[in-house]
């Protein structure tokens, strides 16, 4: 049942992800991206990462997407002409495809190696509690550092987006 659900989500997610890349109108791309993010969140739940699913929905599907849609509306529709970048499309797809094949290869190999190993038994624990336990003890310093990173990002964003911008 879980496998089936996951399969459905993956199918929907990959389809909408492709639509993000192919749709001509940025707003459509943004809306497809929201769907993709939700399917990813659903897979998080299936994998036992409820807290991250919530974060995914709130931060990604909520905050970041609102920001992106806001900017799309601010900038408006941009008609695109053929440019030099278009020239690299075939080679880009080939390169990315090769990368995909390689990653898939390594993943499959590691999975087959892992099949021999007994998976640690997941007791019926409170995932969120144990997750926060880990985050706030073992990874406290990275956590604090991340907060500083966010602060820097805030300051940088304000500086970049203020009306005068950075003049040369």
């Amino acid at each position: 049942m879980i496998t089936f659900l996951s399969f459905i989500f993956t199918l929907v997610g990959l389809t909408t992800a492709i639509l993000v890349v192919t749709s001509k109108v940025p707003m459509n791309a943004a809306l497809f991206l929201v769907v993709t993010l939700f399917t990813v969140a659903a897979n998080y739940v299936l994998l036992g990462a409820e807290f991250l699913a919530a974060v995914q929905v709130i931060v990604y599907a909520g905050a970041i997407m609102v920001l992106i849609i806001f900017v799309i509306q601010l900038v408006g529709f941009q008609p695109s002409k053929d440019g030099s970048v278009q020239k690299q499309t075939p080679i880009a797809i080939v390169a990315a495809g090769l990368l995909f094949v390689q990653i898939a290869f390594y993943t499959v190999r590691s999975l087959t190696q892992l099949n021999g190993i007994q998976k640690p038994v997941q007791a019926a624990v409170d995932h969120t509690a144990s997750f926060s336990q880990t985050l706030f003890t073992k990874y406290l310093l990275p956590f604090e550092t991340a907060s500083i990173l966010l602060l820097v990002a805030i300051v940088g964003t304000v500086l970049l987006a203020q009306h005068k911008g950075i003049r040369e």
């Binding site: 030099s84 970048v85 690299q88 080679i91 880009a92 390169a95 990315a96 090769l98 990368l99 390689q102 990653i103 390594y106």
Partner: peptide, 17 residues
């Protein structure tokens, strides 16, 4: 163009992998 540079980067990763 940024994307040309990005492509070179991807190819680099490919070679490393």
């Amino acid at each position: 163009f940024v994307q040309n540079y990005a492509l070179v980067m991807v190819i680099g990763v490919l070679v490393l992998a």
